[in-house]
Design a protein around this nucleic acid. Structure first.
Lengths: 168, 168
DNA sequence: CCCAATCTATACTGATCAGTCAAGATTGGC
DNA sequence: GCCAATCTTGACTGATCAGTATAGATTGGG
């Protein structure tokens, strides 16, 4: 259960479009330069965002991308769903029931209940945050109550410690 | 950001071991049969769990796997970290800073703040649930307060609707 | 009309993930 | 000592993901 590159970079590109203001537009080369990503890669990400209904594209000499909705009406949850799907997809049990019939595997479905709780916790964050919140955030200015850890400096680079229980 | 197969199946296998009681042990063929997974695949998953310190293995004629700790002391968060890593790894920004230097990309780090909140929400569920909770759950008997949606029947198979904002 | 700047689309390659395969090492019972 | 049952290991294959490459379609300005 890891964040995908599409989610990270796609959200960044979407924010670049949002920074152009209500009627402004951003081009692929512009976004590419500002984010330090290759233009073909930005093009691919923008295509995904466009097909997901998050941005609109204008072709031609003065083309570019604009937000499909005002930023306060774009929820991060929707953007991430378009870019990387949801954690617990509805067809998950059908695709992962093992060789046994449906989801009636012997451990019961306490696990499904866990996944539903987990998805609920994720949505409680992502469905209360809009693009607007991310555009104007002073690190914790979002509508959802930020955690205290948000107050630490930006460039803390704590290397991953041994968080695993035991490493043999 | 999707649940991985290792996380789903590995957790199921771990539960099978836990079901054997305090001093019982489960073998790979047993788990394989009960979960409907191939024996080589179960072997691979159990190896990951063993190297993560969650189970202990006994070789030989009467071998098998036992929990490394009592089930009430095994947190689901730890099991999932071993099986599939964490959502927001500490080195994420170093690996995904684009071609730009470090994390100082132009959209600022409001995104990092979001990821931290999200990881916090995930941990709030996974760090309050133990293997014990999953073993004896009547669908919502875990220590964390369950959501109302847990009360729906188990085999609801609602096909995924159009949750995306717009589909062009 | 032509050109430059833009978005669009498909195909391609390398990396990581999922699951399998085959051979080996250990243990207990007879 | 032998054998059967077990765990252990590394390599292998197909699938999905990440990012690139290349050619095409559209638009506006001169």
């Amino acid at each position: 259960m890891k964040l995908s590159s599409h989610e990270e970079y796609g959200l960044r590109c979407l924010l670049q479009v949002g920074r152009q203001g209500p009627n402004g537009s951003a081009t692929i080369p512009e976004i590419s330069r500002k984010e330090g990503l290759s233009t073909p890669y930005v093009a691919k990400l923008m295509r995904i965002l466009r097909r997901g209904g998050l941005v609109k594209a204008a072709r031609g000499n003065v083309g570019g991308y604009t937000l499909a909705l005002p930023p306060e009406r774009i929820w991060v949850a929707d953007a991430l769903t378009v870019l990387g799907g949801r954690m617990y997809e509805d067809d998950f049990c059908e695709r992962h029931s093992g060789a046994q019939a449906s989801c009636a595997h012997s451990t019961g479905c306490s696990i499904r209940s866990l996944w539903r709780d987990l998805q609920g916790a994720i949505d409680s964050v992502l469905r209360t945050t809009t693009l607007q919140d991310l555009l104007y955030s002073g690190h914790g200015a979002r509508t959802s109550a930020p955690l205290p850890s948000d107050l630490v400096p930006l460039h803390d680079r704590i290397k991953r410690g041994p968080t695993n229980p035991v490493s043999k």
